[in-house]
Simulated scan of single mutants.
Amino acid sequence: MPSFDIVSEVDLHTFTNALDQSNRLLDTRFDFRGVEASFKRDGLNATMFAEAEFQLTQMEDILRGSLIKNQIDPKAMEVGDMEGFGKQVKKSVTMKNGLESDLCRKIVKLIKDSKLKVQSQIQGDQVRVTGKKRDDLQQVMALLREADLEQPLQYNNFRD
């Protein structure tokens, strides 16, 4: 029976490349000359450091652009609140990795409400969809692409 998994993952190497590109862009931008501003990575989390609040909003846009260039959906990015310390301000950025149980249940409900002849089951932080026909599975993928979910989805482990 054909099946596939619905996951939400961010590749660590690609995320690191996006942060490196953002840091290089900060070095070359005219409005950031002579300013202490940088991105620091810790796993799938990053911290933006700058001297003023408006610079943090510009850095957020720079990071979004770099993520898009590296084929990472910016919906996976969750920006925290601004914190001030000393003469610098910082903001934390967390990349969503894995599906939360509420979102898994929402996906399963969406698939069941579509009345397609497939079965879906939650397996940890992913959802497995199984059906008799490959076309039914492709309809599920199309349905989920059209749905407005708060997190980007990938479809992997497709078996025929």
Rank of each mutant, 00 (worst) to 15 (best):
T14A: 14
F49N: 15
D160Y: 15
A142S: 15
G43D: 02
N17R: 14
T57V: 15
R41V: 04
L19M: 01
S8F: 00
N97C: 06
A46R: 06
Q71N: 15
N70W: 01
S120T: 07
P74I: 01
L144M: 04
Q71P: 09
Q121T: 12
S8T: 01
L110F: 00
G43I: 00
R134P: 03
K96L: 13
G98E: 00
V118H: 02
Q126N: 02
S66W: 01
G80Q: 09
I68R: 08
D5V: 01
K75T: 07
F54W: 13
K132D: 14
K87G: 15
M95D: 06
R33Y: 14
G86D: 11
D125V: 02
F49K: 15
R33D: 12
R105I: 09
K96E: 13
K133N: 07
T47F: 05
R33G: 08
I62R: 09
K96G: 10
L44V: 03
F4G: 00
F30K: 07
F49E: 15
L63P: 06
L149N: 06
M82F: 15
S66M: 09
E83G: 15
L99S: 02
G43Y: 00
L26F: 04
S38Y: 09
N70L: 04
I107H: 00
N23L: 04
R128I: 07
K106G: 00
K115T: 10
V79E: 07
Q154E: 11
G65T: 09
E9N: 10
R41W: 04
S8R: 00
D11P: 11
Q71M: 12
F39G: 08
F54A: 07
Q55F: 04
K133Q: 09
I72Q: 13
R41N: 04
S38Q: 12
L67A: 12
G34F: 03
L25R: 14
R105W: 06
V127I: 13
K133E: 10
Q138W: 10
R24F: 08
V10T: 13
D135Y: 03
K40D: 12
G124L: 01
D73H: 08
D27H: 07
N157I: 03
Q121G: 04
Q126W: 01
F32P: 01
